[in-house]
Structure formats: structure tokens, C-alpha cells
């Protein structure tokens, strides 16, 4: 055990022994502080309808979502695109994990903080608008453009959605081409988009068939209201009372009013 020689009897020896009690902090201390301050990020894998995905976050919110894959590749891409350091964590903070699970299962009132620094106000407006589209429904790019007051910026809306850093959390997959076809998707192309929409209960084959047949809007001959075909109100219309329109003008000419939920009217400006 201890020998007398190790006991620091003099003040100097005791003070030196106390100085010796300084230790290096584990790396998690400093890095964790940078993450909380939003100056670096952590990431972990979660399960999604498209398989495992990496979710990156910091003290400000979720900053990045992409299909899980090679860690080094992911980290390099993140550092280059976002300009912050990133390190793996064991798992997401419990609250965030629960919130994302609830969002993916279709709850719209779940609040998930997002860190969208470095993106333009236009991009953020597009992504915020996409959040309003209910699970299992889709809207055309032009609808987003019109709703955010930039009806002519349809192409820019498409670009902004392609650059969505947090796919699935911000459901850019619920925005489709203005001709009703499924369109591109950053999480793995049109097939992945079909898969995630199918996981939300949308019959994509039906949707694309409708689009191919030129049926862009759905109305009810009892209420004389017309909708986007996937609007929950449109899907309640029985076959006997269902009417289809190739465009807004046709719907208006037939004396139909636009649905207040899916708001097809804003498209008229486009």
C-alpha cells in the first residue's frame, strides 16, 4: 500500500500533487459543447420507410437526413456541404427520436426543430410549405409556388425541393410534377419516392394512371367542389359522383368551387 514517501508533507509537495490532479477532458466534453452551440453536429441512424437513414443534428435542430451508407463518405459530404464538423453518436436524443417517429407516422402537429442556416429564405419557404401537405397526399410543384406567392417560380421550387437537406422530416416526396407524374426525389430517385408515398398509403399506380389520363382535378357532382385528386375530401367522393377535370378552367367552367383544404385555386395564377 502507500508508503510514507508518497505522502506530500510539505506545502510545495502537496501543491504539486494537487496540480497533478488536472486531467484531460474526454473529447465528448468539448465536441458536445460545440454541438449544443450549433457549431458542430452529431449523427445517428434511424429506421425509415426507405430503410436506414443518417440523421444529423445540433443544438438548433435537425440539420441533415440522407440514406445510411459509408460513414466516411457521409461525414465528408456533410462537412463539405454544411461547413461544420460532424461525429457519430450512439443514437438520437430520445425526444428527437420520438418526434421524428411520430412525424414519419403522419402526425402533423409534431414540432421538430430544424437547423436550416445557410439556406435562402425562398428555400425555407418552400420546405415550410411542403410540411403542410398531409401524409398520403401530394401536391404539384406549381401549388407550392403559388402558395408561397411566387407563382412563376415553379422550376425554382423543384430545385429547392431537390436541395432539401432534411428529406422525410420535411416531406418533399409529397410534391410531384405539375402534370401529376411522380417526379424526381433526392433520397433515391422516383422509385424511392413511389415507395415512401406507398408507405403513406398512397396508391401511386392509380395516381400516375390518373395523371396519364389527364385527370388533374377531382370534383363531386353533389357538392360541386373540386380538389387535388389525393385530397382527403376528394377521396371520399364515391365513383358514382366523381367527376374529373383536365385543368382549372374546365372545373371553373363547370361551375365547381375549389376545395378549402387543398386549395387548387391558387394554381390559376400560374
Amino acid at each position: 500500500m502507500t508508503t510514507a514517501a508518497t505522502i506530500p508533507f510539505t506545502d510545495q509537495a502537496l501543491e504539486a500533487a494537487l496540480r497533478d490532479l488536472r486531467v484531460a477532458a474526454p473529447p465528448s466534453v468539448g465536441f458536445g459543447a460545440l454541438v449544443e452551440a450549433g457549431l458542430a453536429d452529431c449523427y445517428a441512424a434511424i429506421e425509415t420507410p426507405l430503410g436506414a437513414a443518417f440523421v444529423a443534428w445540433n443544438g438548433r435542430g435537425v440539420s441533415w437526413v440522407s440514406p445510411a451508407g459509408d460513414r466516411r463518405t457521409f461525414e465528408d459530404r456533410f462537412r463539405e456541404a454544411v461547413g461544420r464538423d460532424i461525429a457519430p453518436a450512439e443514437e438520437l436524443p430520445a425526444r428527437l427520436r420520438r418526434a421524428i417517429a411520430r412525424r414519419l407516422s403522419g402526425e402533423r402537429r409534431v414540432r421538430i426543430p430544424l437547423d436550416l442556416r445557410g439556406h435562402t429564405p425562398f428555400e425555407v419557404a418552400v420546405w415550410t410549405k411542403a410540411l403542410e401537405i398531409p401524409r398520403g397526399e401530394v401536391r404539384p410543384y406549381g401549388w407550392i409556388a403559388a402558395e408561397i406567392g411566387r407563382p412563376r417560380a415553379v422550376r425554382a421550387v423543384g430545385t429547392a425541393l431537390a436541395h432539401n437537406p432534411v428529406p422525410l422530416v420535411v416531406p418533399c416526396h409529397r410534391v410531384v410534377r405539375s402534370d401529376g407524374m411522380i417526379g424526381q426525389y433526392s433520397m433515391g430517385g422516383p422509385d424511392a419516392k413511389r415507395r415512401v408515398l406507398a408507405s403513406e398509403g398512397l396508391d401511386t399506380r392509380w395516381l400516375e394512371a390518373e395523371a396519364a389520363a389527364g385527370k388533374r382535378f377531382t370534383g363531386s357532382d353533389t357538392t360541386h367542389i373540386f380538389c387535388h385528386p389525393t385530397c382527403r375530401d376528394a377521396r371520399r367522393v364515391t365513383d358514382r359522383h366523381r367527376v374529373s377535370f383536365p385543368n382549372l378552367r374546365a372545373a371553373a367552367a363547370a361551375g365547381y368551387r375549389p376545395c378549402k383544404h387543398c386549395r387548387p385555386v391558387a394554381l390559376a395564377a400560374a
Binding site: 508518497t6 506530500p8 484531460a24
Partner: peptide, 21 residues
Amino acid sequence: ASDGRSAPSTSADRRETQREL
């Protein structure tokens, strides 16, 4: 110490002193 900065010598006596202190 994980980096050797604060404890250049890690003799058993010294560790014991640190522990007791």
C-alpha cells in the same frame, strides 16, 4: 491523463497519491 500531459510519470506511487488526494 489520456494524453500524458498532466502525468508524465505514471509510477504506482504517484497514482496512489493522486487517488488518495
